[in-house]
């Protein structure tokens, strides 16, 4: 596919054909890889937030009277036990409640007699998520003081934001592909001009356009590949650095932003795609330029 035999290769002098093109592509690949990594991480995070976290609800029973509270808590647990779409539930014990509150109230404020609501974390299945309204209806019928706190409701804007950021990253990658192609077009045109005389002579001896294009496409594609690999190495260093920082923060939400292995494969494939893109663009550019000559 690359074409050009050893002897053909000598037709164009040694050295770079592409001028600054590989470095332009290196910069572009650096930015593309960062945008792609961000996009992939965002997409993954949105998927997981929308999935696991989005299927959790918390039921609170807010009743001042401890007896009533316990009664309604039992009622809620019975309803949850028989409703369809409930994957599991877990009533937060006294210790867990205190652990949640300690950051706000401090040790001194934690009074055993403080009227705390009862809290039950519920995991829903996908089907359960869909019929949450019916489950909620059953719960409030059995326990009038039950309040259902839907995690998806407060996650929704965040998921939306993350999704848009992911789309933005995708848009940037698309633009970068266009800019890379343009850089190759410019490099191919300038290489054509530089070697116009050699091409003319080859034509007069009966070279086909494909033969001439082969001389250029191989070299330009290898130059582009070189630039792309340099750019990707730079990007990977940055991505690993950011990943370590995020790891140090270690919070649940931030922690859910990470690159799955499929994303790494996609990133590593980028230079190859850039090389193939350069090959195709160089070939087209050369052939179209030659078609205008006799």
């Amino acid at each position: 596919m690359l074409g050009a035999s050893q002897a053909d290769r000598r037709l164009l002098p040694e050295g770079r054909l592409a001028g600054p093109m590989p470095w332009v592509i290196a910069i572009m690949m650096f930015l593309t890889a960062l945008a792609a990594a961000a996009g992939l991480a965002m997409g993954d995070a949105a998927h997981r937030l929308g999935g696991d976290l989005g299927r959790q609800v918390t039921v609170q029973i807010v009743a001042g009277d401890p007896a009533l509270r316990d009664h309604e808590t039992d009622a809620v647990q019975r309803v949850l036990g028989r409703e369809e779409g409930v994957a599991g539930f877990h009533k937060l014990g006294g210790d867990e409640m205190q652990a949640l509150l300690r950051p706000w109230l401090g040790d001194a404020g934690l009074d055993r007699d403080l009227p705390l609501p009862a809290m039950i974390d519920v995991d829903l299945t996908a089907a359960g998520r869909a019929r949450l309204d019916r489950i909620a209806g059953a719960l409030t019928a059995a326990a009038p003081h039950a309040r259902i706190d839907d995690h998806a409701a407060w996650l929704a804007p965040l998921v939306g934001l993350i999704r848009s950021l992911g789309l933005l990253a995708g848009g940037i990658v698309t633009l970068m592909v266009g800019a890379t192609a343009a850089a190759v077009v410019l490099a191919a045109r300038s290489a054509l001009n530089t070697h116009r005389q050699t091409i003319d002579v080859m034509h007069m001896m009966g070279s086909t356009d494909v033969q001439v294009a082969r001389l250029f496409q191989r070299r330009l594609a290898l130059d582009a590949l070189f630039g792309a690999i340099v750019g990707l190495i730079g990007a990977i260093i940055v991505i690993l650095g950011i990943g370590r920082r995020l790891g140090e923060i270690g919070s649940g939400l931030v922690g859910s932003i990470a690159l799955p292995w499929t994303a790494w494969v996609a990133l590593l494939a980028l230079p190859l795609l850039a090389g193939l893109l350069a090959l195709a663009v160089a070939r087209l550019t050369v052939q179209r330029a030659l078609a205008r000559t006799l």
């Binding site: 000598r10 002579v201 080859m202 007069m204 001896m205 009966g206």
Partner: peptide, 20 residues
């Protein structure tokens, strides 16, 4: 003449054969 300056005399003369 229009010889290709970076090719040897041999390669210049061989050019039409290689193209063919």
């Amino acid at each position: 003449f229009r010889l290709i300056p970076h090719l040897s005399a041999f390669d210049n003369i061989a050019l039409p054969l290689r193209i063919a």
